[in-house]
Nucleic acid binder design. Structure first.
Length: 603
RNA sequence: GGUUCCGUAGCUCAGUUGGAUAGAGCAACAGCCUUCUAAGCUGUGGGUCGCGCGUUCGAAUCGCGCCGGAAUCACCA
């Protein structure tokens, strides 16, 4: 198995330098002192050796030391074709022939991810999406879904067995709120009768509940009552609590309503998931897992790992781990959020025996997951080490956080439609798709609109909060999804023309080619693909893949602009350029696929 | 107040385990379509990497202290 050769090469060079130091200065040097890195673009060379740490062995100036080592490498390491020393930096050049050979090897390699395989394959669960069934998905969920799906793709590309899961939060007081509002004010409205998407319809009644509650709270409010107290004192809230009790008791009327309204929501969610292109292997429902959680808690209580308060509530004392006391079961015996997460984790481990379980959940829940892992470890489940909270940042609007109560949420469906609409507008204005049918055009608009949205979100470092300004629409130029898609479509078009012109091309050894600077540059970037993907898998960051795709596309566009491909007279050079284009095309498609972005063949 | 995360160009963001003169895009300005797609390419301007101190040959990157922003500290999820 061939690993990433930038890294292998680096290792090789370091070993050679160790040899050089032994020969030249008669000292055994710790290999970790030998720093080799990629040469910065503005200097000539491929790898740079930083000589400063070795000065104490050479007892010479940085320049002299670099010069001596460079000379020795030239004579004793045939892959090095040249070197130069600038200040304390020794830049080493690999031979062009070597690069060309590597290029033809990768170009003819059938498994594009071959070099991404690193480390031993693991079983990894990825939990993402995790919606509530009382309101539709919004921009925050979009970031969650895209990150989760992309992580799945990236980890899988690196050879892991990855299972996508979703936990649906389908029980609790918030669900009862929308049910109650529908019961009281809904007049039997259904998705069919209203023409609304199921999740939006249910979300509408959740909002109605909140409005009604606010009005009632204002009416009952007296004296020094806090907002919270006033809300809890309303008749409406009392009704909601009563409904929750009935739900837990399995009241047939309530269960029926619950199932009906949930089914509306699921149909709505499915539509949104489908549009976003995300999918799951296994869906868990909180209404089914919270009971397992209770059992785990009760067992731990009898094992004296937990303790019971006089009021009957059950707690974990996490102060020894530097955390707080944590409630795991209410005094009335009902489950809290943590309870169901314990149950779900256990179920998942029983079912899949995962090495890692990745929770794609916003950074607002950092504390929750810290506790979850610590509690499970305290209970003696060693595999809890595999619980990893993939914590991502919030999507903020110019006026701050999105708040459903204040109506400042950006709805997922609306946003997707808007993006496709903008793609349509821009595309029609450019007028490049005239001989396409309407359905073909719509398919292209969809890919571009979604590509713009997905790339916009995934190119940002996941752990950072990001800003979305709805009044400035997402760009289609520059460092964007459509730019990369455009580059791809352009290459497709070149290859199509080569075919229709009857030009013969293929992957050869390219031994006689004298590559131009831009072409060599392209070859080098191409070979960073594996590095970007495996690094993205290691650090859980789709952004690395996104930024790699952009670099590659930009480099190709410059190359495309500077050189003629099909117009080139020399067949060997022409063939080489077509091969370069083909490989870039393949890598862009693969890289964007890791982000869940589809590529249009024309645009 | 405790804990965690963030602070890089007017705006949105990159910046590998510390390394050379800090990188893109957007916005502004100036060029380039009779030739494989101009959703592109080229150029110009724009920076005290929040502030200070320290660690060292070398700091946007590591440590400490401030300043500013966010999240969290529920018998909510």
């Amino acid at each position: 198995m061939r690993l990433n050769f930038w890294i292998i090469m680096e290792q090789l060079i370091r070993e050679k330098i160790k040899e050089a130091v032994k020969f030249l200065y008669n000292s055994e040097v710790d290999i970790n002192l030998i720093q080799v890195q990629e040469t910065r673009k503005e200097f000539t060379g491929d790898y740079t050796f930083v000589v400063f740490p070795l000065l104490r062995f050479s007892k010479n100036t940085p320049e002299q030391t670099g010069e001596s080592i460079g000379k020795w490498l030239m004579e004793n390491f045939r892959l090095i074709a040249g070197y130069n020393v600038i200040k304390g930096f020794l830049n080493l050049e690999l031979s062009e022939k070597w690069w060309l050979k590597e290029f033809s090897k990768s170009a003819s390699c059938s498994n594009i991810y071959e070099q991404c395989l690193a480390g031993k394959p693991e079983i990894i669960l990825v939990e993402y999406s995790s919606p509530n069934t009382n309101k539709p998905l919004h921009l925050g969920h979009i970031r969650n879904n895209l990150l989760g799906y992309s992580l799945y793709k990236i980890l899988k590309a690196c050879g892991h067995e990855v299972i996508r899961t979703n936990i649906v939060n389908d029980r609790g007081i918030h669900i009862c709120k929308s049910m109650l509002a529908w019961q009281k004010y809904g007049k039997g409205e259904t998705p069919e009768s209203s023409g609304m998407k199921g999740d939006h319809l249910v979300g509408k009644y959740y909002v109605i509940f909140e409005q009604e509650l606010k009005a009632q709270a204002a009416a009952v409010r007296k004296g020094s009552m806090s907002d919270e107290e006033a809300r809890n004192a309303t008749p409406l809230m009392a009704e909601a609590r009563e409904m929750l009790l009935k739900w837990e008791a399995g009241d047939p009327v309530i269960m029926d309503l619950w199932k009906t309204m949930n089914s509306w929501v699921y149909r709505g969610f499915d539509e949104t998931y489908k549009k976003l292109g995300v999918d799951f292997d296994k869906i868990y429902y909180e209404s089914e897992t919270y009971k397992d959680g209770k059992e785990i808690v009760l067992k731990a209580l009898s094992d004296k790992i937990l303790y019971r308060n006089p009021d009957g509530s059950i707690w974990a004392d996490m102060t020894t781990e530097g955390l707080d006391q944590k409630l795991l079961l209410r005094s009335d015996g009902t489950a809290v959020y943590m309870t169901q997460d314990l149950g779900t984790a256990m179920l998942r481990h029983d079912e899949f025996k995962f090495d890692k379980c990745l929770y794609v959940v916003g950074n607002e829940q950092n504390y929750h997951f810290q506790i979850l892992r610590a509690v499970m470890k305290k209970m003696g489940y060693a595999w809890a080490d595999g619980i990893i909270h993939f914590s991502y940042g919030m999507v903020e609007l110019p006026e701050g956080k999105m708040k459903s109560r204040e109506g400042t949420v950006v709805d997922a469906d609306d946003l997707v439609e808007e993006m496709i609409g903008t793609a349509r507008e821009v595309s029609l204005e450019l007028g490049k798709l005239e001989n396409f049918s309407n359905s073909e055009k719509e398919e292209i608009f969809r890919k571009i609109g979604l590509g713009a949205l997905k790339y916009y979100i995934l190119k940002v470092d996941p752990k950072k909060n990001m800003l979305f300004n709805p009044s400035e629409s997402i760009d289609f130029n520059g460092n964007t999804g459509p730019f990369i898609q455009y580059t791809y479509a352009r290459i497709r078009s070149v290859i199509k023309k080569a075919d229709s012109d009857g030009i013969r091309y293929g992957i050869e050894t390219f031994e006689d080619i004298k590559p131009a600077a831009k072409e060599l540059e392209l070859i080098k970037i191409i070979h960073k693909f594996a590095q970007a993907v495996s690094e993205a898998a290691r650090s859980y960051s789709p952004a690395l893949v996104a930024n790699f795709c952009y670099d590659l596309a930009r480099e190709y566009n410059q190359f495309y602009h500077d050189y003629s491909i099909l117009g080139e007279d020399d067949p060997g050079t022409r063939n080489f350029r077509i091969a370069l284009s083909q490989v870039v095309c393949k890598l862009l498609e693969a890289g964007m696929d890791l982000l869940g972005i589809e590529m249009p063949e024309r645009m």
